[in-house]
């Protein structure tokens, strides 16, 4: 199985008539994603790659029936409006691709999503991909390369680094390890579904047997995952790598951060918390496949 996306989900693309929107719609459809509608205000009535375009999300939903997911490819300043529109039209999962979305806009989206029982991936995300099934966003760049690079299997990948998402996944597959789903949670400080939420979904997915997490310094996502392992909420083996060790210790931008977060956010803090909780922390990136293989053998999944 897989999390969040598979070939049965009906997908809307907001901003489908733009350069990125159009290119990525092609990738998604060629890979197996069911794109049923597009939306660009003022461009209703057209078609992009055979997909009907609507002026509003509500109209798309009325005409095409229930839509599960919206992938948003509009310029950053317009993301808030597009996201609020999709949530109010009843779409339960959004993928916010753009980079540089103002943080208060993200907070407003988050609040509205919670009210409506919706969730979102990103912003500043490459998206996600369930090998052999479907993809949302731009992982792999082209359907052909995505098909060559990623194989289905028992390992779930969650990453905070966009560039490294495909790398981790590719190097795992090259070592013969298939993947259930690959998720780039997004590179910003506040993201809709951070590592802990994705790890929770992998925990619930019966076919995911182990989880690989590419973490980074800053925020408290990795520490929260450590808490979840400790409390028994996460039982599947978790292999973690934390990037940013070389970054000089960031000067705190305010006392408030230090008062609230204490030691969380540092490389050392994250590695220690995860190790103590029982995660396998890998310090050399190229070791991830080997350690993952070992873990899969231990739990007799290989």
């Amino acid at each position: 199985m897989s999390i969040l996306i598979d070939g049965t989900k009906k997908v809307l693309v907001q901003g489908i008539t733009g350069r990125e929107g159009g290119n990525r719609t092609r990738l998604m459809m060629e890979y197996g994603t069911r794109v049923t509608a597009g939306c660009t205000p003022g461009k209703g009535g057209r078609e992009v790659l055979g997909v009907p375009v609507f002026d509003t999300v509500e109209e798309a939903v009325e005409t095409r029936g229930e839509i599960d997911i919206s992938v948003i490819f509009v310029p950053a300043p317009l993301v808030k409006n597009a996201a609020l529109e999709a949530i109010e039209a009843g779409i339960r999962l959004l993928v916010l691709i753009p980079d540089r979305v103002p943080i208060y806009d993200v907070l407003e989206i988050s609040e509205k999503a919670k009210e409506h029982g919706a969730s979102f991936i990103g912003p500043n995300t490459l998206g996600l991909l369930s090998p052999g099934k479907a993809t949302l966003g731009m992982i792999g760049g082209r359907a052909e390369s995505a098909r060559q690079w990623f194989e289905p299997g028992p390992v779930g990948v969650t990453s905070r680094s966009g560039g490294m998402t495909a790398s981790v996944a590719y190097y795992l597959c090259r070592s013969g390890i298939g993947l259930s789903s690959i998720v780039h949670v997004g590179g910003d400080a506040v993201v809709g579904l951070p590592h802990p939420e994705i790890v929770r979904l992998f925990e619930q997915d019966p076919e995911t047997k182990a989880i690989v997490m590419f973490g980074e310094i800053g925020t408290s996502q990795e520490e929260t995952v450590a808490d979840m392992i400790e409390s028994g909420e996460v039982t599947k083996p978790l292999i973690a790598y934390i990037g940013g060790r070389q970054a000089k210790k960031g000067t705190r931008f305010s006392h408030a951060g230090a008062i609230i977060e204490g030691e969380s956010g540092t490389w050392e803090g994250k590695v220690e918390r995860l190790r103590n909780a029982g995660a396998r922390v890998v310090e050399d990136f190229s070791e991830i496949p080997r350690v993952t293989l070992k873990v899969l053998r231990e739990i007799k999944t290989l």
């Binding site: 988050s110 506040v190 305010s254």
Partner: peptide, 14 residues
């Protein structure tokens, strides 16, 4: 002080 909390996804006032 005011900061944005990533876990609560809200501004936090101290």
């Amino acid at each position: 002080g005011i900061i944005i909390s990533d876990t609560r996804q809200r501004p936090e006032i101290i």
